[in-house]
Every structure is written in C-alpha cells, then in structure tokens.
C-alpha cells in the first residue's frame, strides 16, 4: 500500500513516540542492571549509563553469600510456589461450586463475595485478627489470608459457565459426581485460564512486602521484597552486611571499598525482580484473555 506524504509523517511520529516510550520504560531497569554489574567504587564516580564501565560479579557474590538475602529469596520462592498452588486450587474448586445455578444459597454467597471487593474491616482489626489466630510470625500468614481471591473466582466462574454444558452432562450420565466431573472434565480444559491466573497470583505473592512488614519479625521468615524494603529504608546495606560479621570474604571486600551501598542495593533489586520478569513472556499469550474477562464481566 502506497503511503501519502502526510501518512508517512504520521507513521514516523507514532514510531518515534512509541520508541521513546519504550526507552523511558526500559532504561531505569537496564541502568539498574548495569550498575549491579559495575564495580561499586567506579559507579560512584558517576556516568555509568548503558554499559558497565568496569565489569564485576562482586556485587552478586556479596549478595548471594549473605545469609539473610539467600534466606529471604528462599522464603519468597517457597511462598510463591506454595501460595500460588494453594490459591489456584482453592479458588478453582470454590468457583466451580459457585458456577452451578442449582447450588443452594448461591445468590447469598455471591453477595457476600462482592461486598468484600468494596470494603474491609481496615488494617487494625485485621492485624488483631491475625494476632488472635496465632498466625503472627508463621509462614501461613504469608499464604493463607489471600488464598481466596474474589476477582479470580469471578474469572474462573465465567470460564466454567462458558464451557459447553453437554460435556459435563455426559459425564454426569456416566455416573460422575460433581467433584469427579470437575477433576476429570473441567480442569483439563481450563489450561489457559489457570495459566494466566497463576501468573497474576504468583506476581502478587512475589511482590507483596507489606503483609510481612506487619506480621513477620522473625528474620528467617522475611521475604525478599520486605528485606529489600528494609534495606532501602535503612539504606545501610553496608553496615547490615558487615554486622553479619564472621566472614573474611566480606571483610576483604569492604577493605577494598569497591562495593558500595548503591551497587549492593541494585544487585539485591535484580535478585528480587528477575525471577518474575523471566516467567512472564511465557504466559503472555494467555493473560490477555484473563484480563479481559476479569475487567468486564464482573
């Protein structure tokens, strides 16, 4: 198709604008990545932008050898894996029940669910509830309270309702109960919706730092994002790592003064970000549908 001159100008403007937007979006991450691979002492001279000036793995060595950061990373991994599996399973089962018109009292359950989307008891009563349940400083507080997500329930429910009714009916005629119909017929056909919702749940669990800030003060149970927030807040990464003490390796590095607060924070940040970014392109083609169902059919 031939383009008229004005069309060509228009197209060029759009491409330039979008390229600029992509650049502005990506640059801060790229720059953080570069700094995490650059010698700390060199970074503090300024001017490190697109490429490491003096490449080093030192920052990562320090971060990965630090017991607290490694522990926090493991807590986050365990929380995300267990929490996602639990939440998706529970929400799927719940939604299947809620997708059946014959369920006794369904209308009332639904009202109960929707109301929670718009208001809550507030942070303090919630805090006291967790406290009274004895969930403070337990791993469970990181995965159980958010297990049932109403948005995800609505998405699942819409998906289940759209399934051809004949499939389930034939299974029922063959003697399957509700539960085995769900496990044998419905679940195997729900791959895409499970994939996209798992991604959303995993992202939320991985990125959540606030609940741990409120409910966890056992250093062994702090997830990586909360630890990063602590580090950022205190901005004393150097002191914190030093106070871990004991390690000759660390002492040597700090004497050499090539690792700085900034370079270590950047490396920690990358450790906290890369896992989730690495997963998302693989699920990208699924999640568009998830977003659409969730935002319109509520």
């Amino acid at each position: 198709m031939r383009l008229s001159p004005s069309e060509r100008v228009f197209q060029t403007v759009i491409y330039v604008l979008l390229a600029l937007l992509s650049f502005v979006t990506l640059y801060p991450f790229w720059n953080s990545l570069v700094i995490s691979f650059n010698l700390g002492s060199d970074t503090s001279l300024g001017g490190v932008t697109f490429w490491p000036r003096s490449f080093t793995l030192q920052n990562y060595e320090v971060v990965l050898r630090d017991g607290r950061i490694a522990q926090a990373f493991l807590v986050s991994v365990a929380r995300t894996a267990a929490g996602t599996a639990l939440s998706i399973m529970a929400t799927a089962i719940f939604s299947y029940g809620m997708s059946k018109a014959e369920l006794i009292g369904r209308k009332y359950y639904m009202i109960f669910c929707i109301v929670t989307l718009y208001f809550s008891g507030g942070l303090i009563p919630y805090f006291l509830l967790i406290h009274d349940l004895g969930m403070m400083n337990t791993f469970w507080v990181l995965i159980v309270p958010g297990m049932i997500s109403i948005w995800n329930m609505i998405i699942f429910r819409t998906f289940f309702k759209e399934m051809p009714a004949g499939l389930e009916e034939s299974a029922r005629i063959d003697g399957c109960g509700y539960f085995s119909t769900f496990v044998r017929i419905v679940l195997p056909l729900s791959g895409p919706v499970i994939a996209s919702l798992s991604l959303f749940v995993a992202v939320n669990l991985w990125n959540d730092w606030f609940s741990a800030t409120l409910f966890i003060n056992n250093p062994k149970l702090v997830p990586i994002q909360s630890l990063l927030q602590e580090i950022m807040n205190a901005n004393t990464v150097t002191e914190q790592l030093r106070s871990q003490g004991g390690s000759n390796f660390l002492d040597k590095i700090f004497q050499a003064r090539t690792v700085t607060t900034k370079s270590l924070t950047m490396a920690t940040m990358m450790v906290a970000t890369i896992p989730i970014i690495a997963v998302y392109p693989f699920v990208q083609r699924h999640f568009v549908k998830g977003v659409l169902v969730g935002s319109l059919k509520g």
Partner: peptide
C-alpha cells in the same frame, strides 16, 4: 514489564 515489578523496586 513495570506492572510485574514490585512497588519496592
């Protein structure tokens, strides 16, 4: 991408 990055970062 930024949607998937935590507010802390």
């Amino acid at each position: 991408i930024p949607h998937f990055v935590s507010w802390v970062v």
